[in-house]
Design a protein around this nucleic acid. Structure first.
Length: 365
DNA sequence: TCTGGGGTCCTAGGACCC
DNA sequence: TCTGGGGTCCTAGGACCC
């Protein structure tokens, strides 16, 4: 239930804060246990991972035995209850773990795959959400078995060619995905819910400054920049619009990102003059590429052509220096030790930084 | 009835080039 | 000058996942 609704119903309610660093620590501890059983661990989120144990069976016994031991260890050493699904493919394992929840173990033998899947609701398939489930239901398709036996032209009409091909494969237990190491991320973003406020320039400016500070900082942390900047503006009623621009060169400077985001949000607001209030602002940077730090010792050609933060322009150099100093100070003394005033006092910080970090996907260089 | 923050992937239309 | 085909990239929106 939304916090606001809860307060409405119960004005004297006490909200208890989360313990974000603790969640991170426990998640890491569980992963460490998994690492003891196979090097092929693909962490999907803070509390979920795929394991390929095909090379571990001669050490630890069959997959079921491994799953039992993992559950025992996590329970004894960490005190958490773990659900595990064991199967031949990632998708089957995922579905099995869903069925196993909470605190269970479900093993799907290769010979039993269709018997296991067919009676289950289509909503358990990875990639079938509320909308798709409803669309299928209206066509009389409720179970995975029914999906698997539906003629492809019908499904393609309902869901599009690519989606229906994917779903049919999964319904028939065909899933070529391997358990892999972490992939590099394709975008980095941040958002701030504002809870219905007038779209006044100071609010927009301060919020975007805060968000750009986070996003640009994360990009620089892994020596990356992005050519495409996208903003999202959400209006009351969950109506939202996006605006994006793709540049000739990647951005990673805080001020450059802030300026671009402001321009994009301005254009979005101008296009929707009837919307006087906004409920959320977001910035995302994609089209990522490695940005090797400029070696300042080397003489740089002086160019100031239209590129946003060209490392060789005077502005680009100044911003790079500033960002680099800020990053260094923060690394030593913490995020809040230094920053732009408007950002440090912005209302973006209603969400604890620890929570944001918790849900960040690890960014690889 | 609509939390909150971080992501991925697909579709469709249009601009542009050969 | 007009027609037609093929490919790439960009933009906006939406479904879905944790």
């Amino acid at each position: 239930m939304p916090g606001r609704k809860a307060r409405e119903l119960c004005p004297t309610i006490q909200f208890v804060g989360g313990h974000f660093p603790e969640y991170q620590r426990l998640g890491d501890a569980v992963i460490a246990v998994l690492d003891d059983f196979t090097p092929l661990v693909e962490r999907v989120s803070i509390d979920e991972a795929f394991l390929d144990v095909s090379g571990s069976v001669h050490l630890f016994g069959p997959p079921r035995r491994i799953a039992v031991r993992i559950r025992e260890r996590v329970s004894n050493e960490i005190g958490l209850r773990l659900s595990i699904g064991v199967a031949r493919t990632k998708h089957l394992a995922k579905v099995a773990s869903q069925v196993a929840k909470p605190d269970g173990l479900v093993v799907v033998e290769p010979s039993d795959e269709q018997v296991f899947l067919d009676p289950l609701p289509v909503g358990l398939i990875w990639g079938v959400g509320r909308v798709t489930e409803e669309r299928l239901r209206q066509a009389g398709i409720v179970t995975i078995g029914q999906l698997a036996s539906t003629a492809s032209p019908i499904l393609e009409h309902l869901l599009g060619v690519v989606n229906s091909a994917k779903l049919v494969s999964l319904a028939a237990s065909i899933d070529p995905r391997r358990v892999g190491t972490a992939r590099r991320s394709k975008s980095v973003g941040a958002q701030a819910a504002l809870g219905r406020q007038l779209a006044a320039p100071p609010l927009v400016r301060d919020t975007l400054g805060f968000l750009a500070d986070r996003v640009a900082g994360r990009l620089r942390e892994c020596d990356q920049g992005g050519r495409t900047v996208t903003v999202r503006v959400r209006f009351p009623g969950l109506r939202s619009v996006t605006r994006s621009i793709t540049l000739g060169a990647p951005v990673s400077a805080t001020l450059s990102l802030t300026e671009l985001a402001n321009q994009l949000v301005d254009s979005a607001l101008t296009d929707h003059p009837d919307e006087r209030e906004i409920t959320l602002l977001a910035i995302s940077v994609s089209n990522l590429c490695n940005e090797t730090p400029v070696q300042l010792e080397l003489p740089l050609p002086l160019r100031t052509a239209g590129v946003v933060d060209s490392p060789s322009s005077a502005t680009g150099l100044a911003r790079r220096d500033t960002d680099r100093s800020v990053d260094a100070i923060r690394q030593k003394f913490g995020r809040t030790s230094v920053g732009y005033a408007a950002v440090l006092f912005s209302n973006g910080r209603r969400v604890p930084d620890e929570f944001r970090e918790l849900v960040e996907h690890p960014t690889r260089r």
